[in-house]
Structures are given as structure tokens and as C-alpha cells.
Design a binder for these strands. Sequence first.
DNA 1: TTGTATGCGTTATCAT
DNA 2: ATGATAACGCATACAA
Lengths: 341, 341
Amino acid sequence: MNLKQLADHLKLSPTTVSRALNGYPEVSEKTRNRVLAAAEANHYHPSHHATRLAKGKAHVIAHVVPLSVHTMINPHFSDFIAGAGLTYAKAGYDMILRVVMESEEEAVYRSFAKDGRVDGVIVHGPRVGDTRIALLQDLGLPFVVHGRTMADDADYSWLDVNNFRAFERATNFLLDLGHQKIALVNGFEDMVFAARRRDGYLKALKDAGIPIDPEIMFSSEMVEPQGYQALKKVLKQAKAPTAILLSSILPALGAVRAIHEAGLVPGKDVSLVVFDDQLSFLQNSGDIPMFTSLRSSIHDAGTRVAEMLLSKINQPDSGFCHELWEAEFVLGSSTARPPQA
Amino acid sequence: MNLKQLADHLKLSPTTVSRALNGYPEVSEKTRNRVLAAAEANHYHPSHHATRLAKGKAHVIAHVVPLSVHTMINPHFSDFIAGAGLTYAKAGYDMILRVVMESEEEAVYRSFAKDGRVDGVIVHGPRVGDTRIALLQDLGLPFVVHGRTMADDADYSWLDVNNFRAFERATNFLLDLGHQKIALVNGFEDMVFAARRRDGYLKALKDAGIPIDPEIMFSSEMVEPQGYQALKKVLKQAKAPTAILLSSILPALGAVRAIHEAGLVPGKDVSLVVFDDQLSFLQNSGDIPMFTSLRSSIHDAGTRVAEMLLSKINQPDSGFCHELWEAEFVLGSSTARPPQA
DNA sequence: TTGTATGCGTTATCAT
DNA sequence: ATGATAACGCATACAA
């Protein structure tokens, strides 16, 4: 059943039926009710593509996820997408998830910009020297970035966590406790967020006059085995670190496993500070949380980024929007003074 | 630049240009090359909605995820979606992720069925007494179920893991080792997969003549704290279980944490068998994996379910397709004979 | 308040 | 091998 058939059935013109359905004021209450009832009774749903073609708006947001070396569809991503997805749904937007090989990514953006199937996109996980932002600016496709580049971040909209400050702060906290040897278990440092975290860590060490030791700095995918393997290595070093800074709860769990296997106690023999994205399935909460952490909800970030994009789409001339969130410091039971101090 | 403009530019009719672009055989090679070159040069991309309207096919698959009591967007889901998404992309399909409140779920399916915006849907996590399957059959919208109902599973397509057998087998393995008291840390048992797992566990206990103890059976969301809390409870019981059967690696990590805190050693004082979805960020691998497990890749399931749906859409009369995957038993280092045996 | 005519950008049908 | 014309199903400017 399409609009014309419904109109014929009601002995009205398609125009009037369309107006009644879309809430135009000029149609009489009587007619509107007749139309609404008939639409309901006949399970009428307007054709999506016809509507979009006529209106010129897609009501769709795309998230393009490059399925590259380090898989982007990970638990961090799923919590982010849950927040964003709910926001879209509430606003009547659909969310397209487009998994692409890295080589096709540019072509996908180009077609999105031209074929009108989406109104905007979210850019995930900007890398150092990322070319996507310039491309999207060039294409004129509305976008918001979760994260930002290393510089030149004024001429596009983004939401980011102050990763530099969070890790500088975490390092200082450990230094204040008396730790002199602090390891870093970081994500891939070609990702901007990870690079900034490293820089915050290095800055704090430098300010404290502590030499950098590449042997206790790790950078790879933030998964459980990462933390396990890093601690296996580090714990057998002659002068092992007494504290570890980790980029996610996932490697932190692996770290705890390795520490236990070595017959040591986390939060006593080895201190751990973790960046906590508040992943819904790994709640680090309770009165005294398991981990001392810097906390910022990636779910909330997804919600907010989605809101930013929607308002950008509905008010194209509203200028750029920047939000830098400070992570919250939370004292847990994974930190103490170093053993010998 | 649209088709007409491109045609004018080339001094050809839109028809010919369309044919050249879509690979119809009747257009001359010379013309085709001219058209292709001009399209490239002018960054021409056909309007998505116009194409879909004219063709009557959406080239879109939807995954409807009810954001209900137990959040469906979890790490299991994200690995599933990664597999499915890549399959769609390869086949030139888009994937819509629609997050819905449970109350609107039916309305969403109804509109999808009528408005032509999607060609088919994937049904996630069927519950006991799930009404979605009957609804979709009624609506005539192509679908494939990941999982299946408790009965009547002949008249729709599904892919499932043999959860009953996996848990029966795991229980028998522990019984054979000499364990008499085996706890179960399960997902929500209103989900069919969890109900089947429980039934497999109960069957094995019954066959061995071991009484059921509700005090050591847990059913809730499969997250890290679930395993932690369950083991906290269980370990302080007078006659504590010597083995635990867990529905996911996530609670297993929590279980390990609780065991360590109690000063015990997993795989020695307490044995653990885990259902391992092979979550990409928690690899339970290596020569001797951390956990003894029943293994079945949820990523591969996503891939296969997507393939099934696509072939169903392209051959609507091909009948129903059923795949029951057996989980692979993998011996790890988390199991041993019970301490006193 | 309702209807007519036209456009949205393609593909499909039928000529030539 | 190419073109004119009619769908596809809706929205909207303009008329009545």
C-alpha cells in the first residue's frame, strides 16, 4: 500500500493525505483523523527511499570503522556506539556501521559525500598524520571527531579527553607516593590519544628529573594479554618497576594475572594506575574500586559526540564545537607506597 | 553533478550513461570508456536514494538491538558485528544498527517490513518465549536468527552453537576429574542460550546422580564482577565447590580475581571451565591456554549469519537453513583433580 | 481546506 | 548502439 493507493481508498488526493500524515496545520481535524485511522488500519508506512529522495535528507549517520591492523571494533568501541546509537534513535536517525578495509576508506567517504545516503559521519580514533579530517573538510560532509589531531584542531568539531593531563597527573600521583620506576603500558602510539598519554607521562618524569627507560614503555593493542606480557617482562628485570600506568582496564586485568603468577600482590608489591573508560562489562566501581584510575565514560562520550553531530547537521552555520573533558581521579586499592620506601 | 548533467556534458542521453556505468553489454566500448572517464573526473556518484527507489532494493541489513535490562551491546556483540559487518561490506551492503527501547521494537520491525529501507534483519539473542520470530514471519521480512528458540525451530533460518552439549560435556569432564561439587555461573536464563547451557549442566549432574544445589547456581549478566561476586559467595560456603563452570571469559576473569584474593590458586584449588567465544581482546590462546574451555568463535558466527541472510535475500525461495555448531573442547591450565581427591 | 502539476535522480520499457 | 518516455513513491509550489 502506497500513498496513492491510500488516497484512492480515502477518496482524497495524495497531497492531502501526505499533509495529514506529516502534521501540516491546514488540514481539517476530521480529515486528519480519517487519514490517520486508515493509515493505521492498512499498515501504511511511507517508502523510506521515496521520502528521502523527495526531501533530500537522509536521516542517517555513518560510523566508518577501518578494520585495520588494530581492530577498531573492540569493547571500547561498543560502549561508545551504544551511547551514540541511542541518541540517534531518539532523534529519529539511523546509524550505519560501515566496516572497511583501510584502502577503501577514502572512497567510502567520497561516495557518502556525493550520493546523499548519509547526513554526516563520526571520525573514530584519529591517528598521527590522519588524512581523514582534511578529506572530509574538502568534501563538505558534516563530521565530528572523537579525539583530535596533534595540532590544528580549531577548524573542525571534536570531543576529546585531556589525555595528556590525565597521564601527567597519574604519573605525578605515583611519584608522590615515592615510586621512582614507573612503567607505561600504552595503546598504539600512532593513535593520537596514545601519543598524548605518553607525552603526559614523559613530561611528569622529566619534571621530576627521572630518566626515561624505553625498556619499561610498551605500546601495542590494549587487550588482556598485552598487560600480561608486559608485566612478565618487567617483573623479571633486575630493578623492576614498582608501579605501572595502563591505558585500559583490559591490560590491567592481564597485569594483575601476571603479578599473581609471580607470587606478588597488586596494590602492595606493584602499584597500578589505570585509565578507566568505564566499560560497562568491567565495572571498576564499589566503595573502594579495584583500581586507582583516571575515569571518563566512553559511553557518555558517544552520546555527546552524536548530539554534537546532530546539532551541526541541523544548524550548519553554527561554527565549530570543541569539548575537552577532564578525567576524574579515583583512588582505588591498586596503589600504595613502593615496598622498600 | 547528477546523471542528467553528466549526460548533457557528454552529449549523451541519461539512459546511455546509466547503462555504461552499470555495465550493460549493449553499450559500445568507446562510449563506455568516455562515460567512465567523465564520471571519474567529475566525481560523479549516483544518488543512493534515487537508485534504491528505482531498483526497489535497499542493499541494507539491519541489526535491531533492544537496549533493555541486560545491555545487548556488549563485547560479545561487538565481535559478532565485526564479522557480520565485514561480510556486508564485501557484498556491497550497508549495515544499520538500530538501538531501540524494548517497547518500540515491534514498531521498528513493522516499519522496516513496510518502508523498504532494509532487505532483511538479524535477530539477536532470542529469549524464552520470544515473539520476534513469529512477528517477522508474519511480516514477511527476511531474517536469520543468531541462536534459536526452545522449540519449533524448523520454519526459520538460524545458526546456533550446541550450548546444551557444550555444557553437558564440560560438566562431565569435571565429574571425570573427580569433582563432586560444581558451580554454574551462567548468563540470564531467560535467554535461550543460557537456558540450554543450564539444562546441559543439569543433565550431566543428574546422569551422575549428583543432587542439584541452587546455592551454587548463578544467573545474571556475564560481566567481570559477576564472576567475582559469585566466587566470593561460594568460597566461603562450608563445603565450597571445587570446580566452576562459567558462561564467558569475562566472569572467568572476575572469578580468578576472587580466587586469588582468597589466597587460593586457580587450576589447583579451584578448577574453572569456561565457554570461550574467542573474544578478540581477551585471547585465551597460547600453547597451553589459560582456561580449559569450550570454544566457538562468535566472530565467525557473525560472518556466517550474515552470509546466510544475504543468500536468503538473493534466493528467497531457497528454503530454511540451519546450522548447529559444536564447540571445540580445549584443555587449558585452569583445571585439575579436586584438592582432596 | 483540498487538489493539480511538477520535481527528486535513477532505472526500465519500448522504440529506433 | 542509442534515445525518448514512463515508472519508482513521495513532497511541495501553486491553483482553486
